[in-house]
């Protein structure tokens, strides 16, 4: 399968933090005949694939399976649902969006008071407490028949190909990383390698630390989607990275200072293979590297990220070329690491 198709399949699956089971099931279906794997108590998948050669060091790839979403916290007497965010969602993108609630995928819309009924000052604000999910029930009892407290809420978001080879979907963060891992597993590998698929990244890097403890790699590559703020309302120095300019190799973000040698090696690998690559122009974001790098006696860690606009929304946007180049670079980089 082409990496974009794998990504599409993964993005269609629902799996907010703490409820990643559908994503995990698909991944296991894809890897079960190619890898040895275990599922740890938190739900992380730790897989091992044999390469042509025994690896001189223990290298692990890691991507997270969870996506940002919402969680039902209360059912109002009028049948509408209160919710909290699961993961770092900008509340201002929620108003008017369509969602599915719970395992039964009950359709709903996120509503707020009508614009016309708000005072001038209220019109310009959007807080979590202003929003409820409307599932078309007119009282608590009928809502309870459909929904339970704690139900996961996901965005109703079609996977869209648009523009000049661009992709748009929910959950690209980090099904893109998962898709790259699955594609690597499908390829013949030069060296033995570990593949980790983590849970609960979006609620504070909670799965990856435990997974890294169990897997105990020497070196890790974290595969992620990262904020690209290359939009006209952002000044040039605040754009972080740009869509279409290749994978992002990080030297530092808000959670991690990356291994200097690996950082340079990744850039070198990109250059040698003619793969476009960039780095971040702002110390922003954070990912599982923050937990993996400090697990056990320490893990040398690099992050290769896909530049992604509108991260943590139902409409994340990436370029297909960036996705393909990230896969290419990751493979070459892994082989190079073995020769350190």
């Amino acid at each position: 399968m082409a990496v974009a198709e794998t990504l599409e399949t993964l993005c269609r699956l629902d799996g907010i933090s703490g409820d990643e089971v559908r994503v995990a099931e698909y991944i296991i279906e894809r890897i079960k005949d190619k890898c040895e794997y275990t599922i740890d108590p938190l739900g992380n998948i730790i897989a091992f694939k044999k390469g042509k050669n025994r690896a001189p060091l223990k290298l692990a790839m890691s991507a997270h399976m969870d996506e940002v979403g919402l969680i039902v916290t209360y059912i109002n007497p009028d049948g509408s649902l209160c919710f909290d965010t699961a993961g770092g969602i900008d509340v201002r993108i929620l108003c008017g969006k369509r969602v599915f609630v719970g395992d039964g995928r009950i359709p709903g819309v996120i509503g707020a008071k009508a614009l016309h009924l708000l005072s001038e000052s209220e019109r310009n604000t959007c807080r979590l407490t202003d929003l409820t999910i409307d599932i078309g029930c007119n009282d608590r009892e009928s809502a309870r028949a459909l929904v339970s407290l704690g139900d996961s809420v996901v965005f109703d978001s079609q996977f869209l190909y648009f523009g000049d080879d661009m992709l748009c979907s929910k959950a690209i963060d980090d099904r893109a990383g998962c898709a790259i891992e699955l594609e690597l597993i499908d390829m013949p590998l030069e060296y033995d390698m570990q593949f980790i698929f983590t849970v609960q990244e979006e609620v504070g890097l909670r799965g990856s630390g435990a997974a890294a403890f169990t897997a105990a790699p020497d070196t890790a590559i974290v595969l992620e989607a990262t904020t690209a703020s290359d939009i006209p309302s952002s000044s040039e120095e605040k754009r972080v990275c740009e869509v279409g300019f290749g994978p992002v190799i990080s030297y530092m973000d808000r959670r991690t200072i990356y291994d200097k040698q690996l950082y340079s090696l990744a850039l070198e690998t990109a250059k040698e293979n003619g793969i476009p690559a960039q780095t971040k122009t702002l110390i922003a974001g954070g990912n599982d590297a923050g937990a993996i790098s400090v697990s056990g006696k320490g893990v040398r860690t690099a992050a290769i990220s896909l530049p992604c606009r509108y991260l943590h929304t139902p409409s994340c946007v990436i370029s297909r070329k960036d996705l393909e180049n990230t896969l290419k670079l990751t493979k070459k980089f892994a082989d190079r690491i073995m020769k350190i």
Binding site: D90, I93, N124, T125, R127, T227, A284, T313
Partner: peptide
Amino acid sequence: TSVPPHLQAAPEKCA
């Protein structure tokens, strides 16, 4: 477009 939160001064204000 949505402006990423790290680039917004007032998090409750609509763009």
